[in-house]
């Protein structure tokens, strides 16, 4: 759906994007993850036609973005990091203004706006001037402006980062709803918990370079700590010995009723272990694969990236 190849961008002499490439699949939630200053906002401003760039290619729906910008923008919605409005307008007026620019028919627009205001939970404040809105309300209004024309692709730049916990949850719930409706979502964030919750694929950017681009599930498979924590009903007897003989077992630590078992291949390990355990006389009361979070993976990878340089 979105294909970016070797995109480069500099501000004056500072090279901010050093040739990034990635692919966003239709209907997926693509997590664009990086620390502050990594180049997320710059990338999104380019992909929404707001910033020029030096070199590289952008294809959206198979069409060249630069050549078909006006056409392609019709299917794109953008929620900027710090949305700015005409603050003397109220939410209703602003959405009307944006809808008119987008070319929506007045009659349907009025109806759609009322519906949108309900969706983003701004109905009560719709006739108040935007200058009096809180950060979270502005964020929700900007989301409404971004989806007013029912775009297929959404660019959301840190939609929840600046919000309080309650606002964050509301925003995430809205994202999940959009995901359910089949939108392709390009979501930048530095909050890994949020990415973990909604993304199908993550792409880590650091200092203008892509360090990793992978499906979230593959990522877990690759970086998961290959350790099983198993607790038995009775004290251990022969179990340790039996398990130790298996070829895919790396090492075993036993203590009382508990075994910590490392494997050298998580795929085989996961497939085999339950069979083996069910053959034992001692019942298993608890079984767990030690899961590392995206946060661990992120720290791991960005550290590696630093070492490579």
């Amino acid at each position: 759906m979105i294909k970016v190849a070797d995109l480069k961008k500099s501000y004056q002499r500072l090279e901010v994007l050093k040739g990034i490439s990635f692919d966003v699949k239709k209907g997926s939630v693509f997590g664009f993850i990086g620390k502050n200053g990594a180049g997320k906002t710059t990338t999104m401003n380019i992909l929404t036609g707001l910033l020029r760039f030096e070199s590289g290619q952008i294809l959206i729906n198979g069409m060249d973005f630069l050549k078909n910008k006006i056409e392609l923008l019709k299917s794109i919605g953008y929620l900027p990091e710090n949305p700015v409005f005409y603050e003397y307008m109220n939410a209703y007026e602003y959405l009307n203004f944006i809808g008119e620019i987008t070319g929506l028919k007045t009659k349907k627009l009025n109806f759609d706006i009322l519906h949108l205001l309900k969706v983003v939970n701004l109905k009560i404040q719709a006739k108040r001037r935007i200058s009096g809105y809180s950060r979270g309300m502005k964020q929700r209004l900007a989301l409404a402006a971004a989806i007013i024309h029912e775009p297929d692709i959404l660019f959301l730049d840190e939609p929840a980062s600046a919000l309080d916990p309650e606002g964050r949850l509301e925003m995430l719930a809205l994202l999940e709803e959009l995901k359910r409706r089949g939108k392709t979502i390009f979501l930048s964030t530095h909050i890994l918990n949020d990415a973990e919750r909604v993304c199908d694929e993550v792409c880590i950017i650091e200092e203008g370079r892509i360090l990793l681009d992978e499906k979230l599930s593959d990522l877990y498979d690759k970086y998961i700590q290959p350790v099983f924590d198993i607790e038995f009903e009775k004290e251990l007897t022969v179990e340790t010995e039996i398990l130790n003989k298996l070829s895919w077992v790396e090492s075993i630590k036993a203590c009382g009723k508990i075994i910590n078992l490392s494997v050298n291949n998580i795929k085989i390990g996961r497939a085999e272990i339950l069979k083996v355990l069910s053959g034992l006389d001692n019942y298993v009361t608890s079984f767990q694969i030690r899961k590392s979070s995206l946060e661990d993976i992120f720290i791991n990878i960005t550290n590696q990236g630093r070492k490579v340089k």
């Binding site: 929404t48 036609g49 707001l50 910008k69 006006i70 923008l73 019709k74 794109i76 919605g77 953008y78 900027p80 710090n82 949305p83 700015v84 409005f85 005409y86 203004f97 944006i98 620019i101 987008t102 070319g103 900007a142 402006a145 971004a146 024309h149």
Partner: peptide, 13 residues
Amino acid sequence: SKKKLVLPYSRGL
């Protein structure tokens, strides 16, 4: 300078 054109331009102004 106040980035007020970001939303309109992203809507194809």
